[in-house]
Every structure is written in C-alpha cells, then in structure tokens.
Computed example of a mutant assay.
Amino acid sequence: MNFTPIEELFEKFDETAQILQEELSCTYLDALGETGENFFHGHVIQEEISELSRKRLSKIYQHFSTRNYTKEDIRKAYQLAILKGMQENIQPNHQMTPDAVGMFVSYLIGKFTNNNQELSMIDPAVGTGNLVFTIMNHLSGQQISAYGVDIDETLIRLAYSGANLQEHSVQFFTQDSLEPLFIDPANVAVSDLPVGYYPNDVRAAEYELAADSGHSYSHHLFIEQSVNHVQDGGYLFFIVPNRLFLSEEAKKLNDYLKKYTHIQGMVQLPLSMFKTEAAAKSILILQKKKEGLHAPKNALLVNLPKLSDARATKSVMGKIDEWFKQEKY
C-alpha cells in the first residue's frame, strides 16, 4: 500500500505509543508524549522497557528523520494520534482547534502584523499546541518566538514533544494561566478560549472582569490576562462563543474592552463547523491601546461561508482585503 507522508507518520506514532502504553501502564496520550520525545532524540529514553520492546521501538526511531517530512505533515500526523487518544479519554478541556480555524487565524495574524519579520506570541490556554503550531507553520516567513501556558501536564507534555518534532521555538509553562505569569509582553496573543467558570474566587477577585457575585467566567479572565501580557499596540486573536456579548457579564466585558483595546473586528465562523448553533464560535480581533493609535472607522465584520464554497470564500477574502486597504494600509 502507498501511504501518504501523514498516514505513514501516524502509523509510526500510533504503533510506538501503543507499545509504550503497555510497557509503562499509562494512558495513550501520556505514551504519545513519551514516544514524541523518543522520535526527537532518535532512541528510547525510558529505562523501564523490556528488551524486546526496546528493540522494536529503536528500529522505528532510528529510521525516522524530520528531513523526510514537512512541518505540516508532522503536525497533522501528531494531531491525528492525539485525537485518537482523546476519543479514548474524553475530557471537556481536551478539545483541539480545527485546522481550518487555525489556518484562518494565521492568515489574519499575517495581515494585521503586516508580516513583520519578528513576532513574539503567547497562548495562555495552549493545550496540545496545535493552534500555535498551525500559525507558526503558516507564517514560516516570519521569525516567531512563542510562549504557551496550560495547567494540564499531559497536554503540555504533548505540546512540548510536538514543538521539538517540528523544530519550533516555544517555551511552555505548566501552571494555572490565571495566576501571575512571568513572561515578557508579546506582540500577539492568541487563544481558543476555555469557556466556563473559574473556581478560584480569591484569585479572580484581582481581575477587573471578576463577577460581582459567584464564580467568574474563565474566558473573560483569560481575555484580561492576555491584554495584560501584550505590548501596547499589540494584537489579540480570540476564538470565542458567538454569545460572548449576550451573557449577564457582557456589559462589564464591553466596558473593559473599550477602556483598554480597540475592537478591530469579529469574524463569525461557518455554522457548519459546529454540532449546534449554540456551540458556534467567532474570531474576536482586538488591538491594545497605544498613544497615537485609533480605532478603525468601521470594524471588520465578516460571516465566513463554508470554506468548501470557493466562490463565496473568495468574495469574503476580497472584502477583507478591501477593509485592510481602507483601514490599515
């Protein structure tokens, strides 16, 4: 059989992860993080492996070379293996940003930053790193240093292995993203915001967007944390629920955004991407205020069609280009 490079890589990731899962008595996702490290080093780094499995694994690792695959091949194959692991152990915080969304966010970042040669980027809810890697792969002409934060050790381990395999410069921090972050302000913040309530009311109280009573919305606090960690004039790209500005805390959020940012636009993602209309999301684009910068006369408001509809997509991209000519260039 003729496998595509992605299929071939997935088979390698999957086979070796299953061997390690059995040998280490761990979950598939934990084993995938371990095998990612082995692929990067070119040999088995775990000590507690039987000799037979060590030989099987070593043969696969020694014949692997990143030179035989593109970064996108590696990302997609690794993503497929992660998705397999997530199906075995479904948790609400284990959700990956769809590729089409990541690619469109990449396009927007390139447009808004005018393809600056050097960028620093932070994702405070980095998860497996898939969104960050998609952006870095699609903006390969720009030198991007990235920072990712997540409280989930398994996800951070997968992100770390994924960054090594794709040879990306990313620093990862395993911690509660809403606690103080010891990271220099970045040019760009990007995040597929985790939606829900933040259980730490004491920490939440230190935020302007804390709820007046009860638990605060974690996604609101993530927005504030991101604004705090972006340079003046920097851009923020958030994947948010369509109903973000319809909740009981919406006025406070609106007031906060008007105080600290210029709202650049809102791109509604195709409803066909989501199981229900209630689950539908948009890309919210903000720019942190800076002396001499002004809000656009008209915000970029776009409803993306099904990306399989080439004619409608081309029409929308034309409107976006026209907006940039009028407002940015």
Rank of each mutant, 00 (worst) to 15 (best):
K59Y: 05
Y69V: 11
H63R: 09
L80M: 10
A81C: 09
T66S: 02
K84Q: 09
L80K: 06
A100L: 07
P92S: 10
G102Y: 01
Q91I: 10
N93D: 12
K76Q: 09
T97H: 03
G85L: 10
N68T: 05
L83K: 02
S65M: 02
E88M: 13
T66E: 05
T97M: 04
I74A: 07
E72S: 14
Q62H: 04
I74Y: 00
A77Q: 03
Q91W: 04
T66D: 04
M103A: 10
K84S: 12
F64N: 11
I60A: 10
K59S: 13
I90W: 07
H94V: 14
N89K: 13
H63Q: 15
Y61V: 11
M96C: 08
K59R: 08
L83R: 01
M86F: 07
D73I: 01
Y69W: 07
F104E: 00
N93A: 12
D99W: 00
M86I: 14
G85Q: 09
A77C: 00
L83T: 08
M103D: 12
T70N: 05
I60C: 14
T70E: 01
S65I: 02
G102N: 03
A81K: 05
F64D: 12
T66F: 01
A100I: 06
I74E: 04
N93F: 11
I60G: 15
G102C: 03
D99I: 00
A81D: 07
M96K: 00
L83V: 11
H63A: 15
I60D: 13
A77W: 05
E72L: 08
M103F: 02
H63T: 13
I90C: 14
E72V: 12
A81V: 08
I74P: 02
T70D: 03
A100W: 00
Y69P: 02
A100E: 06
E72H: 07
R75S: 06
V101T: 04
Q91D: 13
G102H: 01
K71Y: 00
R75K: 03
N89V: 15
T66K: 02
H94L: 12
G102Q: 01
A100T: 00
R67L: 12
N68D: 10
V101S: 03
A100K: 01
D73Y: 02
Y69L: 07
N89Y: 08
H94C: 12
R67K: 07
Q79I: 13
Q62C: 07
K76Y: 08
D99H: 05
R67V: 11
F104M: 03
Y69D: 10
T70R: 04
Q95Y: 00
K59M: 13
L83P: 11
Q95T: 12
Q87M: 09
R67E: 13
L83S: 10
I82S: 14
S65R: 03
Y69C: 13
K59T: 14
K76H: 09
Q79S: 13
P98R: 04
P92N: 15
G85W: 04
F64K: 03
K84G: 14
T70S: 14
N93H: 15
Q87H: 10
D73T: 06
